[in-house]
Structures are given as C-alpha cells and as structure tokens.
Nucleic acid binder design. Structure first.
Length: 396
DNA sequence: ACGACCCTAAACATAT
DNA sequence: AATATGTTTAGGGTCG
C-alpha cells in the first residue's frame, strides 16, 4: 500500500514535536505543537502568516509554495518569509516522542511454508516500489543529492552518513543474505537467477564481497536452500549447472518487509569505521566530503540513531527503468536520476541555518530525505520475525 | 535466561 | 576427477 505521503511508509511513522525558533523573535515563525499521531506527523507546523489551518495530510506543501522550503539546496539555509527580503534564522528542534507500529510479520530467512504470514496488503506481484527501494538500498548522501552536490546536515552538530557499498567496501553490507538475494533476483530481467548470477550481482553491487572470503557464497546457497522465500526453478538441461532461483510470490511481501527494515549489526561496523576514520584524521574519504553549496561542512560522523536504509537507483538499473516506465516514481523520492528541477537560490548563511532547513525538509519529505538523520526514532533493529525458522519446519 | 534471527562453517550429496 | 551447486546440521553472536 502506498504511503499516504511521500517519505512516509506505513511503518516508519514518527510522532514528534517540532519546535522552530527564530532568532528575530516569533513574528515570522511561530511554532509549533506536537503531532498527535502518525497520520498527523508534523502537520501542525505553522510559520508566519501561513493560513493553512487544517490538518490535511499534505503538510508543508504550503511551505514549498512559499518558497520557504522549495528545493533548498540541502541542507537548507536561512528562511525568507514571503514578501520579505529579510532572512530569518531558524532553529528547528525535533523531539522524538514515540515510535509507531512496526509491521508485525517481516520475512524470516527461514520462512515457514504457510503464506498467511505474508502481508496481504503488499502487492506481491508488482516490482519493488521506489519508496521501498529508497528505503531499502544504501545511498550515499552525495549520490542522493548530487544535483546540488549537497549533503544533508542533521539537527545537531553531528552529521550522519549512511552505508554506501561503494565507499564502505571493507564493511559487510548491512543486509541479510536473504535481502541480498532478493535484491539480486528482483533486479534481474527474468526475476530468475542461477546461483552464479546471484553471486555476480552481489559482488557487483557490494564490492565488499569481491574480496571477502568465499564463505559468503556458502551462505548464499545455504539461504537459498533453507529459506522458503526462494524456490528453485528448473532450467533447460545442459545449460550450465544448477537451477534458476526465484522469489516465491507467497513470500514476496515478507521479503519486502524485511527490506524495509533497517539492519543492525553491520552498522556497528559502520560506526567503528567512521570512528576510526575520525580518530585518524578527523575526516572521511574525499569521496564523502560534504559540501553545502559552496561551503565545506564538517566531516560526517556516523550515528546509529535514525540510520537510514536508502536505495541507490544505480544499483537497480533495470528496476529503475521499469518503475519509471510504469510511472511509479514517488514524489519526493530523491534519486540520482529523478531529481526535481533545480531550485531557486536560497540564502545560506550559517551551518545552523542549514540544520534548520534540513529539519524542515525532513518534515516535508519524511525520514528518507536525511539519510540517517536522527529525526526518526528508528531503533535500527530488525523487525521481529514471527515466522519460525525452517530448521524446524523443514524437518517436517 | 531464553527465543528469534542471522551468520558462518562444515559435511555430504548431486550435477555438470 | 574437479568443480559447482544444493542440502543439512551445528554452533555462535546479537538483540529484545
């Protein structure tokens, strides 16, 4: 089911309080009160003379209309109220208050045979939606916002960087093998792949595995065999070894569910990776250097809070094309190839301003915009898997 | 402490 | 025979 608004999916709703302060007083930006539920997330943000009084579900569109937010070259800058040339410095504070429900039945690597666990609300026959992919695949902030070469800044002085398989090549990808396999199959033209091609996809998209010990291939095969989400399809004899593997449609929603979850353990590596980097020279690789317009920002520091799990459409060339052709691009989904038109210039005066605008964009676009910003109370753990592992089931 | 989930290693069987 | 593929078991780590 499509999220009700861009940037929010059905299980990452956040209820929070947004406080927006102005340094010049409260004339232009009197804020704010807390939302009272996921469906009203941040809908009560009001600024200046904005007349939007209702609680509609397209919050902040009026901000965009007023050019307050419109395509602020992330992560933002000073806000100029409509009809005024005087920039207003704002500080936004997002208070996390609660976490909404998480989906109850994601995919286990070892799903049992009953498909009633599958989320029937998910379309099991359609390609991965851009939203899901956005959430599922890693993307570096650089890639995410490359039309402006800008990296979003968090609400604090700490920047956040997501996992980028092309950068963090020494880190094991934060995806379970079932997810990796799923992505590989999903990204194929025929939706069926032999083991060899699954290997190839994984190594292509996650360079970590190019140099990793071969045990991971064993894990892939192990997963294919044990995980009932995947099924074997015979192919013509004498056409190489082995069979083709595909996703069992009954379990596809489960896999989608799993993909939407934010992994946990491997991010410990990510944190250590950057911690080490920061200890060494207080920076990260040049490819990750952050720019705010023309301003070099502080080197990012990884936070485990609100780590995001974003899609890099480059990793899904086929899927991306297919989705684009189907007109399934989700508004607000920032991708390398589907960026909104370049924005009008915006005043950028200070890092603090930038943080404010970033927060507003977070409100406008939802969590994925920030690539790990701590707006979301994402616990970072896997969803609880309710499907019993096949170790038991398969013995039946 | 326990269960769930996930990973890794290994042994073994089968197919090419 | 060598290699790739597939199946199964076992054990350990992390988390809630």
């Amino acid at each position: 089911m499509a999220p009700e608004r861009p940037g929010l999916d059905d299980e990452r709703c956040t209820v929070g309080t947004v406080l927006l302060h102005t340094k010049a007083g409260a004339q232009n930006a009197d804020i704010v009160k807390e939302g009272d539920g996921a469906a009203k997330m941040f809908t009560d943000v009001r600024v200046g003379s904005a007349t939007q009084e209702d609680d509609d579900l397209t919050p902040l569109s009026w901000l965009q209309d007023k050019n307050l937010l419109r395509d602020i070259p992330l992560p933002g800058g000073t806000i100029c109220a409509e009809g005024s040339t005087e920039p207003v410095e704002v500080q936004i504070e997002v208070r996390e208050e609660s976490v909404s429900s998480r989906a109850d039945s994601p995919t286990s690597d070892y799903a049992e045979e009953s498909s009633e666990h599958a989320d029937s609300s998910s379309n099991s026959d359609t390609p991965l939606s851009p939203t899901i992919l956005q959430q599922a695949m890693p993307i570096s902030p650089i890639e995410q916002y490359d039309h402006n070469d800008v990296v979003p800044q968090p609400l604090t002085n700490t920047n956040h960087v997501g996992y980028d398989p092309k950068v963090h090549t020494s880190l094991k990808p934060p995806y379970s093998f079932s997810c990796l396999i799923f992505m590989a199959i999903e990204d194929s033209v025929t939706q069926k792949l032999p083991v060899k091609d699954i290997y190839a996809w994984i190594t292509d998209h996650f360079p970590y595995f190019q140099t990793a010990p071969n045990g991971w291939k064993n894990s892939v095969r192990h997963n294919l065999s044990l995980n009932k989400c995947f099924k074997k399809v015979d192919k013509s004899p004498n056409v190489g070894k082995g069979s083709l593997w595909m996703v069992d449609h009954c379990y596809r929603p489960n896999l989608l569910q799993a993909l939407k979850k934010v992994p946990y353990h491997p991010y410990m590596q990510l944190e250590r990776f950057h911690a080490l980097n920061n200890n060494n020279n207080n920076t990260i690789p040049n490819s990750q250097s952050c720019r705010l317009g023309n301003v070099e920002s502080e080197p990012p520091v990884v936070s485990l809070v609100g780590r995001s799990n974003m899609l890099n459409p480059d990793l899904f060339p086929f899927l991306t094309q297919r989705l684009a052709a189907a007109g399934l691009q989700v508004p607000g989904a920032y991708t390398r190839h589907h960026n909104p038109p370049p924005p009008p210039p915006v005043h950028i005066e200070s890092q603090e301003d930038v943080n404010a605008a970033t927060a507003m964009l977070a409100l406008k676009h939802g969590p994925r915009i920030l690539g790990g910003i701590s707006v979301l109370p994402d616990r970072g753990d896997h969803a609880q898997k309710t499907i019993p592992r096949t170790h038991e089931v398969s013995k039946v």
